[in-house]
Amino acid sequence: MNFPQIRLQSSPASIAIQTMPGKMEIEQPQAELDIQQPKAILNIETTPGRLTIDQTEAWADMNIKSVFRMAEENAQEDQQAALEATASISQDGDELMMIENGGGAIASQAKRNGESPIYEFNIGWIPRHGSVKINYEPGDVRIDAKPQQVINNSKSQKPIINYTPSQVDISLKQHQSLDIDFTNLKFVGINYEQEI
Rank of each mutant, 00 (worst) to 15 (best):
S90C: 15
Q174C: 06
I123D: 11
S90R: 07
N113F: 12
H129P: 02
Y119M: 07
G49D: 02
A75M: 12
S88A: 15
T86Q: 11
A75W: 12
E95G: 00
Q176F: 09
M98I: 08
Q176A: 15
P147S: 04
L172D: 03
G130A: 01
V150I: 12
N63D: 08
P165R: 04
Q55H: 10
T47S: 03
G104M: 07
E72R: 12
G139F: 00
H175N: 13
A85S: 15
P159Y: 06
K146G: 03
I106Y: 11
I118M: 09
N101I: 06
P138E: 07
L96H: 05
N113P: 02
A82V: 08
D144G: 05
S154I: 05
Q80W: 03
I170Y: 01
S116W: 15
G102P: 00
S171K: 06
Q79R: 11
Q176W: 11
F121W: 11
I64H: 10
P117K: 04
S90E: 10
Q80L: 11
E57S: 05
D144W: 03
A145N: 13
G114H: 04
N153V: 06
A81D: 14
N122Q: 12
N153S: 10
Q80M: 14
A107V: 06
I64W: 07
I126S: 08
T47W: 03
G103W: 01
P165D: 02
S131D: 03
M98N: 15
N101E: 15
T46F: 04
Q80N: 13
I170T: 02
E120W: 02
D78N: 14
I151M: 09
R69H: 12
E120V: 05
P117D: 07
F121D: 08
P117Q: 11
M70L: 15
S90D: 12
N135Q: 14
E95K: 03
R69D: 09
A60H: 01
K111Q: 14
V132Y: 00
R128E: 04
T164L: 05
S131K: 00
M70C: 14
D94Q: 13
P127Y: 00
N113R: 08
P159F: 06
Q149R: 12
E57D: 09
M98V: 15
K146E: 12
R112M: 09
P159H: 10
L83D: 08
E95V: 00
S171D: 14
D169W: 04
H129E: 13
P147K: 04
H129R: 11
W59V: 00
P127F: 01
A110H: 14
G102H: 02
I126L: 09
N101Y: 15
S66F: 06
A145H: 03
A105I: 03
R142I: 10
E100T: 15
G104A: 12
D78I: 06
P48G: 02
P138A: 12
T56V: 05
Q79S: 13
R69P: 00
Q109V: 01
D169P: 00
Q76Y: 12
I123W: 07
K155E: 13
S90M: 14
G130T: 03
S154M: 11
E77C: 13
V150N: 04
F68Y: 15
S171I: 01
A81V: 08
N101F: 15
E77L: 14
A82L: 11
Q176V: 02
Y163R: 03
N63M: 09
G49Y: 01
Q149P: 01
N63T: 04
T52G: 04
I118Q: 10
